[in-house]
């Protein structure tokens, strides 16, 4: 049976999601997406600056990709909703990554405002993927509010500190019925593989690519790591067992 990820009625083959921010040269984005075969790609909205000759990022994203607009810059639910509606009006589909941040020091997301935004946008028919602080109860609230997936952070945005939230994300993977996608903080392919090994459904990476000396090569590496981790998860990693051999058999009474 083919292993596909289903989100909002779409079937996604690649479990490696790519963010397109902070690349020094926009043209490299296409090469990154080709090298990694990524299908889900995040973009952001911003005011047009007629004085700058900035190219349109959409020109560098292959047709086959699913665009997911990030609401970055939103400080509360209302702003996130406004950005989502703008993205839809621009003809970029209805996949929205809700990112609400009002803490400028650590850039950690505001789960409460995020939940409010999910309620509104899911009701309007958006496919909503909230970026969140890992938390089981909040994740459940997000699913109840209509989230199509949840995206807990691995460590603070752009920190490249790796998968520090493993214990909580593992619980979320076990308990949450919608896809769990690790977003933010993943700095190296081995960390992405680890996310996948414990059962995360996908990994979203941006800074680790855009800040690499060779983003295209790095994208390839991540893509392989995500696949390897997924295969390991599907193969069933044997549990570590405390080899405390019972002094007497526990089922001896049956004989």
């Amino acid at each position: 049976m083919e292993d596909v990820l289903k989100i909002g009625g779409k079937e996604i083959k690649s479990r490696f999601f790519v963010g397109t921010g902070k690349f020094p040269d926009k043209a490299v984005v296409r090469d990154v997406l080709e090298a990694s075969a990524a299908e889900v790609v995040t973009v952001a909205v911003r005011r047009v600056d007629p004085d700058s000759s900035d190219e349109n990022i959409l020109d560098h994203i292959p047709e086959r990709c699913v665009l997911m607009t990030n609401t970055s810059g939103a400080r509360d639910a209302a702003e996130a909703v406004r950005i989502a509606r703008l993205a839809k009006a621009a003809g970029c589909g209805d996949w929205i990554k809700i990112e609400v941040i009002n803490d400028n020091k650590y850039l950690l997301p505001d789960n409460k405002e995020t939940i409010k935004a999910i309620e509104i946008l899911a009701e309007e028919g958006f496919t909503v993927l909230p970026y969140m602080n890992p938390d089981l109860v909040d994740a459940r609230r997000m699913v109840d509010a209509g989230a199509a997936a949840v995206m807990p952070l691995g460590s603070p945005i752009g920190s490249n500190r790796g998968f520090r939230t493993e214990e909580i994300v593992r619980i979320m993977v076990d308990e949450i019925k919608v896809p769990v996608i690790v977003d933010a903080g993943i700095g190296a392919p081995s960390e992405a593989a680890r996310c996948m090994e414990i059962g995360a459904d996908a990994v979203l990476v941006n800074t680790a690519l855009s800040a690499a000396a060779d983003p295209v090569k790095m994208a390839e590496a991540f893509s392989k790591a995500v696949e390897a981790g997924r295969s390991a998860y599907l193969a069933g990693i044997p549990e570590r067992i405390e080899e405390a051999s019972a002094s007497s058999p526990l089922t001896g009474f049956l004989r």
């Binding site: 397109t20 921010g21 995040t42 952001a44 005011r47 349109n56 959409l58 990030n70 993205a87 800074t207």
Partner: peptide, 10 residues
């Protein structure tokens, strides 16, 4: 009036 388009973003 706001004129908005897309840019790279995570």
């Amino acid at each position: 009036i706001e004129i908005i388009s897309f840019t790279g973003g995570g």
